[in-house]
Simulated scan of single mutants.
Amino acid sequence: MTDLELLASFRATGEAGPVINDWKAAEEALSTAFPPAFKSFLEAFGGAKFDDFLRVYRAGAENEYADLVANTVTARHTMEVTRDTIRELLAERGVKPSQLICWGGTDNADMCFLIPHEDPEQWAVLTIIGRGREYDLYEGPVESYLLRILRGDIVSEVFPDDFPDEEPGYERNPWI
Rank of each mutant, 00 (worst) to 15 (best):
V69L: 07
V73L: 11
L100P: 07
T13L: 15
L146D: 03
G132V: 12
V19P: 13
T74W: 13
I129K: 15
E5W: 07
P18D: 12
L89G: 13
A124H: 11
L6A: 14
L146S: 04
R93F: 06
F34Q: 03
D161V: 05
F34S: 07
E88C: 13
A70I: 12
L150K: 01
L90F: 00
P160K: 07
V95W: 03
I20G: 03
S144I: 05
I129R: 14
R76N: 09
L54C: 05
Y145R: 08
A8F: 14
R87V: 15
R131A: 14
A33V: 12
Y57I: 00
Y65P: 01
I101W: 08
Y138R: 04
M111I: 09
E28M: 10
N63S: 04
A66F: 00
L90Q: 06
M111K: 15
S144P: 02
Q122V: 07
L30I: 08
N71S: 05
E64M: 08
Q122W: 05
A59P: 06
S98P: 03
F50E: 03
G94V: 12
I154N: 03
R148E: 08
T74C: 15
S9W: 09
C102N: 10
D51H: 03
A12I: 11
L126Y: 05
E5V: 10
M1T: 14
W123C: 11
N63T: 05
D3F: 11
W23L: 09
D84F: 09
W123N: 10
R172P: 02
L30R: 02
A75C: 10
F41M: 01
F45A: 01
E88M: 12
W123S: 11
F163H: 03
E80R: 13
G46F: 00
L147A: 00
L4Q: 07
P35A: 07
G94N: 12
F113C: 14
L150V: 01
Y65C: 08
D153V: 01
L89E: 14
R148A: 04
L7M: 07
L147G: 01
Y65I: 10
R83C: 14
I101N: 05
P141I: 01
A91Y: 00
V155A: 10
L100R: 06
H77F: 15
V19E: 11
F113E: 13
A8P: 11
E166H: 06
G47T: 02
D110C: 04
E143H: 07
M1H: 09
F163P: 03
M1E: 13
E134T: 03
D110N: 08
T85I: 15
E139R: 07
L126R: 12
